[in-house]
Nucleic acid binder design. Structure first.
Length: 653
RNA sequence: GCCGACAUAGCUCAGCUGGUAGAGCAACUGAUUCGUAAUCAGUAGGUCCCCGGUUCAAAUCCGGGUGUCGGCUCCA
């Protein structure tokens, strides 16, 4: 066996090193001191490893420096370890569980009878940063599972012992320990070289979290934090959080008169005049779009007898989420549970199936596309309600499309076309995620042949679209595979909005059929789809995306006329009236405020156009528009402004 | 639902260890008639989330409830 190993670098060049050389020493000696200083961890043949590991075989070596997002991810995991060590020092008797790095930071779950207070958090943060300053090396050690159990059992860490049991069941024989200072935890690694390299840690919040996320398990204390290599990056992150807070639809919605909540109706919004305008504009635009695309709008009952839900299967699996209603003519001697035999609909699908069944269908009329904007109710857990994104009452731009199997690819393409039109109009990027059958056959209906067919059809449709998509194996609905649209807003946040779901099960349950060209009965396939998703959630996304400054076509008030003084109110009034008569949404500010104040108020109300009217404008029968955001347009005749509105404020679809 | 925090005027917030509730903005009234992000003065506005308890006395302390917010596996 040669006592040198060949190390291939990312640029393709190869170097030799004595077998057993530490990666960090190799980098320092054979590549450069600068890289060694910036290095955080490394990859050997693509596998992440500590810099303290040795080169024992020929391998490709990639050095990951603190410039890489991957290094930050590792550093945050390092930070979780350091914080946990500090917590155990400060609060003896606290047990550790898990502490992963997450998208914007890290968390660590602790088992401790007493919750952490905000003051505790401050103390922990301070001590964590002190431990970082102490620059303790992370030391890796591999031990047998028996040794590990003995170690953690001895420390009284019963959650850790439980995790080791899981690891043993997965077939592992050894465990890697990481120590810093006198503290020890186990994890896959890698870690950075030492605590000092982490940078700066900021603790964000405490929260309860169930062990393994299951409400049946013990409640743990979770501490969320984040870490950055330098303070500046941390401050940028905190500034971004501030910006998010400013854009929060829960704040902007009531402030702009869009919607409000009241404690007598948790989870159900009151739509105020401006919000109702916005809601209706979105609904009207969608109605026009779908009616041009072969959809038929229908309205169905809100209240149904439970027999419908028994047939659809909801009564078994979804009953917890439905609002049940007492049938007062039911037998009073029956238990209340049985008298609650009516329910508010949580979904539109079954009623669309019933409409489909109200006539005998021919292959000639497929695809049949029903569209409904009706109020739906779902009884979400009180603790999960929040703003417009998690509500109990909402409406979807919901459709169910009945197709022959051969029509699936065309129909999916057609639906995706709608998505492109709509999301393009809002400047929202989206990516596609294809979810396939749940892995456990017990969690799905239909045999493998059916699933093969359904997945094949969706995949074929995806390929034809030519849009990039990623696979999300095993995440399909129990009745069929689906395509999810993940939208990215102006702040880079991702939202799962609409889905296209193939459903082979519902046609069976409801015995749906159509007469084919062979004059025999066939089963159609149902496609569930929504473009906005729910109006409530979509308005929340748009509000934050636009920071409340909606484009002119959507703005509840499109223009506000500002008179320079009340000598010009008559022309101001006429401007407002004439624009309103043409269907534009206009207000007049004839208060005795000075122009500067009127401008300011119009800006704060995020109205797209402020129309200044003074002496010049009266003489010229003109207005001087000023865009939200400050751009001052030249004075123009009123008709020219109306033309500008026609160009900019007409719904794009 | 569970864990934690919070709840004072329309909004943003102050109100110390218990002693008759305050500011700014908004609103209203008056004056001002003004050219691109705040004119001045005055007036009014409160079930201190709700229900109990302790106390001579509760926004404040205690208990219960409601609502809101942060969370409740991105799995060593």
């Amino acid at each position: 066996m040669a006592d040198v190993v060949k190390v291939t670098l990312p640029d393709g060049s190869a170097k030799e090193a004595p077998r057993g050389t530490r990666i960090l020493d190799f980098v320092k000696g054979s590549i450069g001191a600068g890289l060694a200083k910036a290095a955080y961890f490394a990859k050997l043949d693509g596998e992440p490893v500590d810099l303290s590991r040795t080169l024992d075989r020929d391998a490709r070596l990639e050095v990951v420096t603190t410039k890489s997002p991957e290094a930050l991810e590792v550093a945050r995991h390092d930070a979780a370890h350091v914080m946990a060590s500090v917590v155990q020092k400060l609060y003896p008797g606290t047990q550790v569980t898990i502490g992963p790095s997450i998208e914007e930071g890290f968390y660590y779950d602790f088992a401790r009878a007493q919750p952490f207070t905000p003051e505790d958090l401050e103390a922990i943060e301070k001590a964590t940063n002190e431990a970082i300053a102490a620059d303790l090396p992370f030391v890796r050690e591999e031990v047998s599972l028996e040794e590990a159990v003995a170690l953690f059992d001895g420390l009284g860490e019963k959650y850790k012992v439980e995790i080791i049991g899981d690891i043993a069941r997965k077939g592992a024989k050894t465990l890697t320990l990481y120590r810093h200072g006198g503290w020890v935890d186990f994890c896959l690694g890698p870690h950075g070289p030492s605590t000092g390299r982490i940078g700066v840690v900021k603790l964000m919040s405490v929260a309860g979290a169930y062990w393994r996320g299951d409400a049946k398990n013990a409640m743990l204390q979770r501490i969320y934090g984040t870490a950055f290599f330098d303070r500046k990056a941390l401050e940028a992150h905190l500034a971004r959080l501030e910006e998010l807070k400013k854009r929060d639809h829960r704040k902007l919605g009531p402030a702009l008169g869009l919607f409000a909540f009241h404690e007598v109706a948790p989870g159900s919004a009151f739509w105020l005049p401006h919000g109702t305008t916005l809601y209706n504009l979105l609904a009207d635009a969608m109605r026009r779009l779908v009616s041009r695309n072969g959809y038929q709008e229908v309205k169905t009952p809100l209240l149904f007898h439970k027999r419908l839900w028994e047939q659809s299967g909801h009564w078994g699996v979804y009953r917890e989420n439905m609002f049940l209603v007492l049938d007062k003519e039911s037998d009073p001697s029956l238990p209340v549970e049985e008298r609650l035999s009516m329910s508010l609909k949580p979904m539109n699908c079954p009623s669309h199936y019933l409409i489909y069944k109200m006539a005998r269908r021919s292959y000639r009329e497929l695809p049949v596309r029903y569209f409904t904007v009706d109020v739906l109710h779902r009884n979400e857990l009180s603790g999960s309600l929040g703003g417009l994104t998690r509500v109990r009452q909402f409406a979807q731009d919901d459709s169910h499309i009945f197709v022959m199997e051969s029509q699936i690819p065309d129909e999916v393409e057609r639906i995706t076309g709608l998505m492109k039109t709509v999301y393009g109009a809002f400047g929202l990027e989206f990516t596609l995620r294809f979810s396939t059958r749940p892995p456990n056959p017990a969690d799905r209906v239909g045999d493998d042949a059916l699933w093969d067919k359904a997945e094949g059809a969706l995949r074929a449709a995806l390929d034809r679209l030519g849009l990039p998509w990623e696979l999300n194996p095993g995440d399909g609905a129990f009745y069929g595979p689906k395509i999810d649209f993940v939208v990215t807003d102006s702040l880079g946040r991702k939202w799962q909005t609409c889905t296209i779901q193939l459903d082979y099960a519902a046609p069976e349950r409801f015995d749906l059929s159509y007469a084919g060209d062979d004059n025999r009965e066939h089963r159609p396939v149902v496609i569930h789809r929504a473009v906005y998703g729910s109006f409530e959630r979509f308005i929340a996304i748009l509000t934050e995306h636009y920071a409340g400054a909606f484009p002119a076509w959507l703005a509840p008030v499109q223009a506000r006329v500002l008179t320079v003084s009340d000598r010009f109110d008559a022309w101001g009034r006429e401007v407002a009236d004439r624009l309103a008569a043409q269907g534009w949404r206009v207000e007049l500010d004839h208060s005795s405020d000075k122009l500067g104040a009127k401008i300011r108020n119009a800006q704060l109300a995020k109205i797209p156009f402020a129309l200044v009217v003074g002496e010049k404008e009266v003489e010229a029968k003109a207005v001087s528009p000023r865009r939200h955001g400050g751009a001052d347009l030249q004075s123009m005749p009123l008709d020219a402004f109306a033309e500008l509105l026609r160009r900019e404020a007409t719904p794009p679809f």
